[in-house]
Amino acid sequence: MSREKLAEAADVLEAAASDADDDLAERLRGQADQLAKLADRSSGPDHGRLARHMHTLSDLADDADGDLADEIQRAYDLVEGYRSTVSGV
């Protein structure tokens, strides 16, 4: 199963970090790094791990405004799209 959506979500968050203030940018880069690592692993993440990332992305979107919040939502949607392909729930 391809984890391209996770890699794309990481790229979206990394780009969004360049438009965020210092604290939010750091948090976005942290999520981007974690998602990139998940995309590169030999086995994909489980539902619980993905749910935690989605919860964090929701919190980040709540802390952002305008276009930045939209980009974080885009990353959320990508993770959600990947999660829908994971078997087990």
Results as ranks from 00 to 15, higher is better:
Ala51Gln: 15
Asp77Glu: 03
Tyr76Lys: 11
His47Gly: 06
Ser43Pro: 00
Ala64Phe: 01
Arg49Trp: 00
Leu24Pro: 06
Asp23Ala: 15
Tyr76Phe: 13
Gly48Ile: 04
Gln73Cys: 02
Asp33Thr: 11
Glu80Gly: 07
Met54Thr: 10
Ser43Glu: 10
Leu35Arg: 15
Asp63His: 10
Asp19Thr: 12
Leu60Met: 12
Glu80Pro: 00
Ala69Ile: 09
Ala64His: 06
Ala32Asn: 05
Ala16Arg: 01
Asp22Glu: 14
Leu57Ile: 03
Ala32His: 13
Val86Glu: 11
Arg83Ser: 07
Ala64Lys: 00
Gln73Trp: 04
Ala17Gly: 13
Asp40Gly: 15
Gln34Trp: 11
Ile72Asn: 01
Val86Asn: 11
Ala25Tyr: 08
Ala75Gly: 01
Ser2Val: 07
Ala36Gln: 07
Gln34Pro: 00
Leu28Asn: 03
Glu80Leu: 07
Arg49Asp: 09
Val12Gly: 08
Arg74Thr: 04
Val86Arg: 13
Gly44Gln: 10
Lys5Leu: 03
His53Tyr: 12
Gln34Glu: 11
Leu50Ser: 06
Asp22Arg: 13
Gly81Phe: 00
Thr85Trp: 02
Ala20Lys: 13
Asp70Thr: 12
His47Thr: 03
Thr56Cys: 08
Val79Asp: 10
Asp77Ile: 01
Ser43Met: 14
Glu4Thr: 13
Ser87Asn: 09
Leu35Met: 07
Glu4Gly: 09
